[in-house]
Design a protein around this nucleic acid. Structure first.
Lengths: 165, 165
DNA sequence: CGGTCTATGTATAAGTT
DNA sequence: TAACTTATACATAGACC
C-alpha cells in the first residue's frame, strides 16, 4: 500500500524499518480503536519495536488485567500462574541453598555433629583450625600495629614529622 | 473502506456488526503479523467480540507471559496481584538471610576479615575456638568408642552376647 | 525522529449468490 | 449464515522537509 509493493519480510534498511514501524503501529492501534467502537469489542494490543520501545492500546471498556483474566479463563492458558511457579521454584532453590549453609554454619559452631560420621569431622576440624589461625594472625597484626603506633606517639614521631619540614 | 463510508460508532445491526467484526479482526491480526515480520517487532493482540469469542495473536519470537513481563518492567504497571509481591518479598528476605549467612560463614573460614574491626574478631575467634573444642571432643568420643569396641571384639563380648540367650 | 505529500496497494462495506 | 464480488475508502511506501 504505497508507491511500491513490498514483500512481507524483514526490512533490512534500519531507517526504513523504523519509519515503517511507526506508521504501521499507528495503523494497528487505530484499527484496534475502531473495531472496539464499531463492534463493541474488547481489544488489547501490546507492541515492542526491535529497539525495545513499547506501545499499547486497550479498549476503554476494560483494563489489561481484566482482559488477561478473561484470556486465562477462556484459553485455559496460564499467564501469571506460570510466573508464580517460577518464583516458587526460585524460593525453593534459595531455601535449599540456605539450609545447606545453615547446616555448614551449625557444624562450624559445633552443633548438630551427632549425625556425622567421624570422617566428616575431619574437614570441619581443618576448616576451624584454619579459620582460627587466620583470625589470630589478623589479631596479631592489629596488636603489632597498635603497639607500633603507641611507641611512635611516645617517641613523638608523629608530632615531629608533622611539624618539622 | 468499502462501498460506503462509515462513521466510527457502534454498528447497531447485529448481523452487520458480527460480519464487520470478523473482517476487521482478521485484518488486525494480519497487520500484527506483518509488522512483526517487517519490523522485527514483538506484538500481542487479544480481542474479545461482544459475544465473548476470543481471538489472539502473539509474534512467534516471544510468548504472552514474556511480553507481559516486559510490559510490566517497561510501564511500571502491575498486571498481577499481591500474591506476586508476597513471593518477591519473600525471595528478597531469604536472599538477605542468605547473604548474611554467607558472610558469617566466610568469616568463620578466615575470609573477608579485612573489613572488620579488631573488636569484631573476638566473637569470631571465640566461636571458632568453641567449635574446635566441640569437634575435637566428639572425635575423642569416637576414638574411645572404637577402642572399646576393638577390645570387646578381642574379648569376644559381642559374639557371646549374640549367641547366648 | 517527527510531519507532509501522493501514487498506489489493501482492506472492507455493501451487494450478490 | 457464509462465501464471493467489487466499488470505494483507507493505509502506507517512498520521497522530501
Amino acid at each position: 500500500m504505497g508507491r511500491g509493493k513490498i514483500e512481507i519480510k524483514r526490512i533490512e534498511n534500519s531507517t526504513n524499518r523504523q519509519v515503517t514501524f511507526s506508521k504501521r503501529r499507528n495503523g494497528i492501534i487505530k484499527k484496534a480503536r475502531e473495531i472496539s467502537v464499531l463492534c463493541d469489542a474488547q481489544v488489547s494490543v501490546v507492541i515492542f519495536s526491535s529497539s525495545g520501545k513499547m506501545s499499547e492500546y486497550c479498549s476503554p471498556s476494560t483494563t489489561l488485567p481484566k482482559l488477561l483474566e478473561k484470556y486465562q479463563q477462556n484459553s485455559g492458558k496460564k499467564l501469571w500462574d506460570a510466573k508464580h511457579e517460577n518464583l516458587s521454584a526460585e524460593i525453593d532453590r534459595i531455601k535449599k541453598e540456605n539450609d545447606n549453609m545453615q547446616i555448614e554454619l551449625r557444624h562450624m559452631k559445633g552443633e548438630d555433629l551427632n549425625s556425622l560420621h567421624p570422617k566428616e569431622l575431619i574437614p570441619i576440624e581443618e576448616a576451624l583450625q584454619n579459620g582460627l589461625t587466620v583470625v589470630r594472625d589478623k589479631q596479631m597484626d592489629y596488636l603489632r600495629m597498635m603497639k607500633k603506633n603507641v611507641c611512635s606517639i611516645h617517641r613523638g614521631d608523629c608530632w615531629r614529622r608533622r611539624t618539622s619540614n
